[in-house]
Design a binder for these strands. Structure first.
Ligand SMILES: [Mn+2]
Ligand SMILES: [Mn+2]
Ligand SMILES: [Mn+2]
Ligand SMILES: [Mn+2]
Lengths: 259, 259
DNA sequence: TGAAATATTTAGGGCGTGCTAAAATCACGC
DNA sequence: GCGTGATTTTAGCACGCCCTAAATATTTCA
């Protein structure tokens, strides 16, 4: 309270000034809310981190004082460049860890999130880069989420979900949230994994169940599940026209996320 | 402070009640001091953890209240069975992590300690056991320290050091402390690693340098270094008598450490 | 355009872990 | 046995992160 948020001064400093585990988790949560909805509200952060709203206000004050975010009282927060870099660093660690645990140590994809949630704060940059190298520098994690590069670049396009498909459309599954182990277990059961091809065969009215072809099988899923699975159009199904097409739908191209 | 330390109640509870990172480090440090010198003094713990003695007193009060150790004021502390189990769990994690980092991820042996010092608090039991399995359940870490088993058994014999050898004696290097990276780098340089055979060729008077055969090379080392390298006698050099011998010097047999 | 509902911040604590300075206790040599 | 230096504990405080209750600001909608 006594020290007014330091004037300009915090611009080019590249060295991270050591962030605690709670701070890293706040920044990560704010980053994710911000990219989804433009800004992060106190309540949303509180929900994401399972803490009381008053605790969020307190933490926000400290983070703003450190130059990690800008806070307009009653209006929400936005990360500064420094805050964004710190968030992406933690997200990179988290996703490389999840990939490593899955691919090298045989974890099921519904078990990696909790483990990575802790390890992301304890692993050194060196360890993370070694894991990344051991994996051949993967670009997506086991749930299909893009892995930011070490210099803070990440593919941040918004994707459609199965719920957005028109009947008859065939797409490729890209991604699903890593936060709900039960959902992940169920998806694995019905063979819905990133990369699999999905066709919407039928949609019942009034937000009813959707009938899908998933790989070579057929599944009926609810609309809640459908809305959580991100997909992308197949790059020109099997026609001969190979150029025009929808321009922004090339698979997996990294793009600078400079907001 | 208001709540008086709970009466007896804390005896057979096997479930660890979640220990914080500082608590795990205190227990580990106390365990190590205790096995070396019988009991842990406040000052020693303070030195080991690089905190003020008054901080140690405060922590000791809390740990005693939780039943993790017994404290006789002005006399030092001793771990309870619960405290000892918690300490050995952390030590197991630490040593498996060091082994994994070295053997799987290519870390040099002087870099693993700091990394393990943090990861030991964040890794789940599941992760540790997967790493152990991936390594074929190793029994010693990269510095030759024995790895406690999951049920709290560890080989705790005291070993001689190079400084204890008589001229002409040949031994096998067992272990060296993992705490001094510079020492470890130097040892690697002169090919002194656990398992290597060492012969004391010559010893200068007045605590002077020792001339050693290390593997196939020859080295001159100071007495400080010599005192830090633990060794064991070779199991009956190359005679035909295969039975009698010194009874307690069989290599690497695990022994219950019930104090 | 207000009043009710909702979101956010402030006020006032708690707990864990650290610190310094001062007091108390212990250990040892004379 | 006793003084003195070393060790240990107590007292008092700071900081980070969390909480609940109460106050305040914003949004919504009758
Ligand atoms: Mn995750
Ligand atoms: Mn986390
Ligand atoms: Mn170590
Ligand atoms: Mn540690």
């Amino acid at each position: 309270m006594s020290a007014r948020t330091s004037p300009a001064s915090a611009q080019s400093a590249a060295a991270p000034p050591f962030l605690t585990e709670p701070v890293e988790d706040y920044l990560k949560a704010i980053y994710e809310l911000e990219t989804r909805t433009g800004a992060a509200a106190t309540t949303d952060v509180a929900n994401a981190l399972q803490v009381a709203p008053a605790s969020v206000t307190g933490m926000i004050r400290r983070l703003a004082a450190q130059g990690l975010l800008d806070h307009v009282p009653y209006r929400g927060v936005q990360l500064t460049e420094m805050g964004r870099r710190a968030a992406l660093r933690t997200i990179r660690r988290h996703r490389i860890l999840e990939t490593y645990l899955t691919q090298v140590l045989g974890y099921a994809w519904d078990r990696v999130h909790d483990e990575a949630e802790r390890l992301e704060h304890a692993a050194s940059d060196d360890l993370i880069e070694r894991m990344s190298a051991a994996l051949g520098h993967p670009t997506v994690d086991p749930h299909g989420a893009p892995i930011p590069t070490a210099d803070g670049t990440v593919d941040e396009r918004n994707h459609r979900t199965i719920a957005d498909l028109t009947v008859g459309e065939t797409v490729r599954m890209l991604r699903v949230s890593d936060k709900d182990p039960e959902l992940l277990r169920y998806l694995a059961e019905i063979a819905m994994q990133p990369g699999v091809s999905i066709t919407l065969l039928q949609r019942a009215p009034f937000d009813g169940p959707l009938t899908l072809r998933v790989g070579s099988g057929e599944q009926v899923v609810g609309s809640t599940l459908a809305a959580q699975v991100l997909v992308e159009s197949l790059p020109v199904p099997e026609a001969s026209a190979s150029d025009a097409g929808s321009p922004s739908t090339r698979p997996r191209s990294a793009r600078k996320s400079s907001r």
